[in-house]
Computed example of a mutant assay.
Amino acid sequence: MHTIDTNLLAPIPIDQLRTLSGVELFKRVIAGDLPAPQVCGVANEWMLEIEEGRALWEASPPANFVNPMGGVHGGWAMTVLDTALGCAVHSMLPAGIGYTTMEVKTNLTRAPKVGERYLCEGKILTAGRRTATAEAKLIDAQNRVVAFGTTTCLILEF
Results as ranks from 00 to 15, higher is better:
P68L: 07
N107I: 01
P13E: 12
V145N: 06
I139V: 15
E24C: 08
I50K: 02
A136Y: 02
R144W: 03
V80F: 06
L8F: 08
D140S: 05
A136H: 07
V145Q: 00
L17T: 11
D33Y: 04
P112K: 03
T131F: 00
E103I: 06
H2F: 12
H73V: 05
A77C: 10
A31S: 13
E24Q: 15
D140I: 07
A111T: 10
Q16H: 14
T6V: 14
G74F: 04
R28A: 12
A127K: 13
L125S: 09
T150S: 15
L8T: 15
V114L: 08
A77Y: 00
D140P: 05
A36R: 08
G115L: 07
P94L: 10
S60P: 10
A84M: 10
Y99N: 09
A55S: 15
Q16L: 04
P35E: 07
L85V: 10
P68A: 01
A77R: 02
E135W: 00
V29Y: 03
T152G: 03
T3S: 13
T131R: 10
T131Q: 13
I155A: 06
L154M: 15
N143T: 07
M92H: 07
A132G: 15
V29N: 01
T6D: 12
V145K: 03
L9K: 11
L9M: 13
L138N: 05
K137F: 09
E24V: 07
H2R: 11
G41A: 11
A55D: 07
I4H: 07
L81H: 04
V80A: 05
G41S: 08
L156M: 14
L8A: 14
Q16Y: 10
R110G: 00
T106R: 00
W46K: 09
I97Q: 12
